[in-house]
Design a protein around this nucleic acid. Structure first.
Length: 420
RNA sequence: GGCCCCAUCGUCUAGUGGCCUAGGACGGAGGCCUCUCACGCCUCAAACAUGGGUUCGAAUCCCGUUGGGGUCACCA
């Protein structure tokens, strides 16, 4: 049974990168008739907010990434909020200590910060010196955290589904803190314990977590549980090849919703950014579920291209049944049918509908003026005006005929006359 | 800086040793169609970072270089 998860921390809106991670997990679960778990990693109490959590849930729902276990829906491994799972982390931490795989440490943060600063000043790498490794501090030692005892020698190798084999020397690792004095776990430990408890079989997450993977594998082994498969998705970059962020424009999923994008179009774009199926560009959601595989997920970071997203949105709008489109845009079905061949987003349809309901005086488009109102078109326009004066009373058909005749006489296409 | 990862048109990518004169898509240029805007169609420009190997043969395999990214917390 395939069991995958998406584990966001509620410290901000769901951005494009997170959405893609969730999406790949969801696709894999659906393809394999497995389970998609949503877990909220809210252990950073200073940054976690209720609003962020809600925004993330709303974003997932809008994208259609429904979860089988998690907030609201619950499930056999509830609760799905880390702050409600503290006893579980304590239990596993104690098990590790009992096996000698972890130990309590009462070095103060200030002392460690001082050593770190000193190392930085001397341009040396800093690594926790192992001061408390053999102190055997008892449970209840004031201010004591729990540290994982990293092996001093050897190496850990794992086969990543997208990057292949990755090896890390243990001497590069340090005895990291896994549990704070107040019993709140740190990322690596919390994730491992929950993935064990929730029986996760494959972890697919952002590229920035590859360095965490060997440490986590070592923890699975210390806890004596099976290690899941790993797949690390390359980052999404901005046009300047820097990690995508607000300064590159819209990065929040909800923002795309508000700008009139169809969720399917965003999904289609996000999957194609980093995954391919031959030359195919447009996929329906069922097609994506059927065809998605890790084999064709690329190992290269990709630049987010808003223009291609917009094009895809347009394609999706064209392919959406008018009734459905009308509902999404908040206009009549007839109007949606009329607009779907030319709209790039839902907002354009809505705006056009409003303009249609409440007509305004036309404004000249500067680009069109520059293109059409040229010295060459001027004599034609003068003739056309005389033509209108002569034929206006005879009605539109007569006028059209007169225009066509004029264009023919002057040896130009109708467009050269009609457009100006 | 240490460690790790990555490297095909501007961008997303196909490509898994001969099918590659490197294909598709977005974007760009030009054209057709057209009452506008779109859609659609046609054409063009545009890439295997670099140096060594391996091989009869390399975009594809290996090594170096260069470049880019990630990460070095009692954040996740």
């Amino acid at each position: 049974m395939v069991r995958v998860r998406f584990a966001p921390s509620p410290t901000g809106y769901l951005h494009i990168g997170g959405a893609r991670t969730a999406l790949f997990n969801w696709l894999w679960a659906r393809k394999n008739k497995g389970v998609f778990v949503l877990r909220v990693e809210d252990t950073d109490q200073s940054r976690s907010t209720q609003e962020s959590e809600q925004a993330i849930l709303d974003s997932m729902k809008w994208l259609g990434l429904e979860w089988d276990e998690g907030p609201i829906v619950g499930g056999p491994h509830a609760p799905y909020f880390q702050m409600q799972r503290l006893p579980t982390y304590d239990r596993h931490a104690e098990a590790m200590i009992a096996k000698g795989k972890a130990y309590r440490c009462d070095c103060t943060k200030e002392e460690l910060d001082r050593l770190r600063a000193e190392a930085a000043r001397e341009k040396r790498g800093f690594k926790y010196p192992g001061t408390c490794r053999n102190k055997n501090l008892p449970r209840g030692t004031p201010g004591a955290v729990v540290r994982f005892r990293m092996p001093d020698e050897g190496a850990t190798t794992f086969r990543d589904l997208v990057k292949g084999e990755i090896t890390t020397q243990h001497k590069e690792l340090q005895d990291e803190v896994i549990l704070r004095a107040d019993g709140v776990p740190l990322y690596n430990f919390g994730a491992v314990v929950d993935d064990i408890e929730m029986e996760i079989t494959m972890v697919a997450r952002g590229d920035d977590h590859v360095v965490n993977t060997p440490r986590q594998i070592l923890m699975y082994q210390a806890l004596e549980y099976a290690v899941p498969q790993f797949a690390h998705l390359p980052m999404i970059l901005g046009a300047d090849k820097q990690r995508l962020s607000k300064r590159h424009g819209a990065v929040s999923v909800l923002q795309y919703r508000d700008e009139g994008y169809l969720p399917g179009a965003l999904v289609n774009y996000l999957v194609r950014l980093g995954w391919s199926h031959g030359d195919q560009e447009i996929f329906t959601i069922p097609e994506l579920i059927e065809k998605f595989d890790w084999e064709h997920v690329g190992a290269t970071a990709g630049v987010f291209n808003p223009q291609k997203l917009e094009w895809l949105n347009q394609q999706w709008i064209k392919a959406t049944p008018p009734a459905e489109l009308a509902k999404a845009a908040g206009v009549s079905p007839e109007f949606a049918a009329l607009m779907q061949e030319r709209a790039r987003n839902l907002n354009e349809i809505r705006d056009a509908y409003r303009a249609y309901m409440v007509p305004e005086l036309p404004a000249y488009d500067e680009k069109a003026v520059a293109k059409q109102l040229t010295p060459q078109s001027k004599p034609l326009l003068e003739e056309a005006r005389a033509l209108i004066d002569r034929t206006f009373a005879q009605g539109p058909q007569a006028m059209e005929h007169a225009f066509r005749t004029l264009a023919e006489q002057r040896g130009v296409g109708l467009g050269k006359l009609a457009q100006p």
